[in-house]
């Protein structure tokens, strides 16, 4: 009877490769990945070479990106933990945990960072600021991750695994966790642009990164107050480009990996 579908050269391509192809088929995502890679290289080069307004802007990017990366990863971890705990604890606890998360996403949470910056004073450390940023990014991650987990748990192959007599622990390890990786990664990614935005806003107001640490936001804020359009252009462009790339990749990940259909 009929041979295996698609006897072309790609027929052995596994699901992970296919997910990657779906991601790069989304044009903003492919462009975003390229831009991010180029930025990383440029920032590293800027650190080494230094000097000039371009070098300064790139060096500022190092501070901003490092902070956003750590704070974003923290926020993502917190959000995923939040969602996973809510789903694991059963329906009532889930509702009790997710209602505040949904309510928080409707608030201008990013303003909590300048507030913290102001209250902690000029001698604030990086770590508490990163924690506050993580807390700002977490609720949105939790809401998306919860939806993804719910959708995953409803999928039919889990019933099939149960019908095959596979024990719950093994089902979690072999079927649920691997299938959760990509959708949850898409949910977690949204923490990165959120963290970068919160930090840049706070630094722009002079209430973000501690004094002595110059991020893009700090440079933009200083230039804006001085009315220096030339000094503003570099960091503003780089920040805009980074945010655009992060969003593009996030969008692509949502479309390529999400089980909930990708549209929220």
């Amino acid at each position: 009877m009929h041979g295996p579908a698609g006897t072309d050269s790609h027929w052995r391509d596994g699901p992970w490769q296919k997910a990657g192809q779906r991601l790069t088929a989304h044009r903003p995502a492919a462009a975003g990945l390229t831009v991010l890679a180029a930025l990383m290289l440029a920032v590293a080069a800027g650190l080494v070479a230094g000097g000039g307004p371009v070098g300064a802007a790139l060096a500022a990017g190092h501070q901003s990106l490092t902070f956003a990366l750590f704070a974003g990863l923290g926020g993502a971890a917190l959000g995923l933990l939040w969602a996973a705990t809510a789903v694991a604890l059963g329906e009532r606890a889930e509702r009790a945990m997710m209602t505040p998360a949904t309510a928080l996403t409707g608030l201008p949470l990013a303003l909590a960072l300048p507030l913290a910056g102001g209250l902690l004073g000029p001698e604030r450390g990086l770590a508490p600021m990163a924690v506050v940023t993580a807390l700002i990014a977490a609720p949105a991650v939790a809401v998306v991750a919860r939806d993804e987990l719910r959708a995953l748990l409803r999928r039919e192959f889990l019933s099939a695994a149960q019908a095959a007599g596979i024990a719950n622990g093994r089902r979690l390890r072999r079927h649920i966790l691997p299938n959760a990786v990509l959708p949850l990664a898409a949910a977690a990614w949204t923490a990165l642009p959120r963290a970068l935005m919160a930090e840049s806003l706070a630094s722009l107001l002079g209430l973000g990164l501690p004094e002595g640490v110059t991020g893009w936001g700090t440079a933009i804020g200083a230039a804006a107050r001085a009315g220096d359009a030339v000094a503003l252009a570099g960091p503003a462009l780089l920040l805009a480009l980074t945010l655009w790339a992060l969003h593009g990749v996030g969008d692509g990940m949502r479309l390529a990996f999400s089980t909930t259909g990708g549209h929220r």
Binding site: P193, M197, S200, L201, L204, I220, A236, L239, A240, L241, L243, W244, L246, H247, G248
Partner: peptide, 8 residues
Amino acid sequence: GPAMPGFL
């Protein structure tokens, strides 16, 4: 749009 948040 994503490249131009309001504060920027």
